[in-house]
Amino acid sequence: MDTILGPLYYAVSWIIVQFHSLYSLVFDEDSGWAWGLSIVSLVVLIRICLIPLFVKQIKATRNMQALQPKMKAIQERYKSDKQRQSEEMMKLYKETGTNPLSSCLPILAQSPFFISLYQVLNHIAQGKTVGVIDEQLLASAREAHIFGAPLSVTFLSSAEKVESFGATLMDVRIVTVVMIVLMSLSQFYTQRQLMTKNVDLSVKTPFMQQQKMLMYVFPIIFAVLGINFPVGVLVYWLTTNVWTMGQQMFIIRRNPTPGSVAFKQRQERLRAKGKLKEDPAEVEARKAVEAARANRQQPKRQTKAKRQVAGTTATTDSTEQKPSLEKKQGTDAGEAKDAKGGKPGQAGGGSKSGQRKSGPQRPKHPSKK
């Protein structure tokens, strides 16, 4: 490991020493501020260099989200043929220009620097020179404390080792626990912000479930691994987490994923500033909806006494109307029966005697007289 990463040890230690020389003009060269800010500056420098990879990571993540339905269809279609499934997946990646590993590029590119910083601080803790850090700088780094905790000790360090640096075990554990909690919270918030604001919720994909799982798994990983890392490495890790959180907040606000909550919020902001060109039909439809809402009258709330009076009046009216309604129905039924010829002598009822009286008289036959 030392042979492979030896050049990186020199690069990381050289960068830290240059920043330390700069901050020593303001702070004591043996203070934790000078060495701690040097580590923070190392993180900032590395993350600035990784911005192009971060942009590629965002594009790759969005492409993977968009491809999830097609990928799931391929898996269902060729679930019994793994080789054909892999071929179709690779074909899909090639056609869409998507690289599944692009989302991991910032982490992969940052890992060698992280390991190198860990080894540099580990050498300092063991009293060994490393890279460009000579005996004088080694002694200065071993004297540096951050809030009472030496840079090169861990949560699990023994009391004797901590006391050899002029610190107490309680101070070390308080500082390390606080930093581990802040690391876990910043990672959780970053992942939660990605899930709740920058994901197209109209498309349900397995990718969303994976991100949701990582939202809870990563903080646990930080908590487990953090107790084994020196304080200086925790400073590096906390700084990079905070940088990632701020960088993601900026990206989500300025360039959110289409269809996400952040995208709708950005559209509303641009619309309020008059910078968003809209379809006239959509504008008219929205105005019509707003006008309908404004003209809609809400029913007035009545007191209990008014509701009782209204109920009594309605009951009385229905009782008064019932006999007249029955009378009317009886009259209508009688008229209908008469219309069919039920009773003689009434209008509409034809009788035989009436017809004989009104009709012409037939003369009687003489023989029957």
Rank of each mutant, 00 (worst) to 15 (best):
T239K: 07
R307Y: 02
P206L: 01
S158T: 15
Q211P: 07
Y10Q: 13
R362H: 12
R47Y: 03
Y236S: 01
S353Q: 02
A288W: 02
D28T: 14
I51K: 05
I133M: 10
V242F: 05
L194K: 15
V235E: 04
A285T: 13
G349A: 11
F165W: 09
Q355M: 08
G349S: 15
L276Y: 05
G246N: 03
P230A: 06
N122A: 13
L276W: 05
I220P: 02
T190Q: 14
H123L: 06
Q308I: 14
L201A: 10
L50A: 06
D28K: 08
P363G: 14
V283S: 04
L276R: 13
H145A: 14
A167F: 13
I74H: 03
A285D: 08
V44I: 15
F165Q: 09
P363L: 12
L42I: 01
I4G: 01
M249A: 03
E320L: 08
E76Y: 00
E268T: 06
G148R: 04
V235F: 08
L214T: 03
V44Q: 09
K304S: 12
M195I: 10
F114L: 14
L5K: 00
L182S: 10
R296K: 10
T331C: 06
Q75R: 13
G330S: 12
K369R: 13
I227A: 13
G330M: 08
I251C: 11
T312A: 11
S41Y: 11
I115D: 07
A294K: 13
L151G: 04
Q209F: 00
T196W: 00
N255G: 04
L67P: 12
F114H: 05
V235H: 05
S260H: 06
Q68F: 00
Q191I: 09
E29N: 10
K59H: 08
Q68V: 00
R77K: 15
S367V: 15
G345Y: 02
A310I: 10
Q355V: 10
T129F: 00
Q265V: 09
P206G: 11
Q119E: 15
L156V: 07
W33L: 15
A347S: 14
R47V: 10
P106D: 11
A336C: 00
K197H: 09
K300H: 07
L105N: 04
D171A: 12
L108C: 02
L53H: 07
A339C: 01
Q361V: 02
E143A: 15
E335T: 11
K72N: 11
L182Y: 03
L185V: 15
P363V: 06
A223T: 14
E320N: 06
Q302H: 07
P106Y: 04
Q321L: 12
F250Q: 03
R293G: 08
F147S: 11
A288K: 14
K264A: 07
L121Y: 04
S260G: 05
Y118N: 07
Q75T: 08
M215Q: 14
R266S: 09
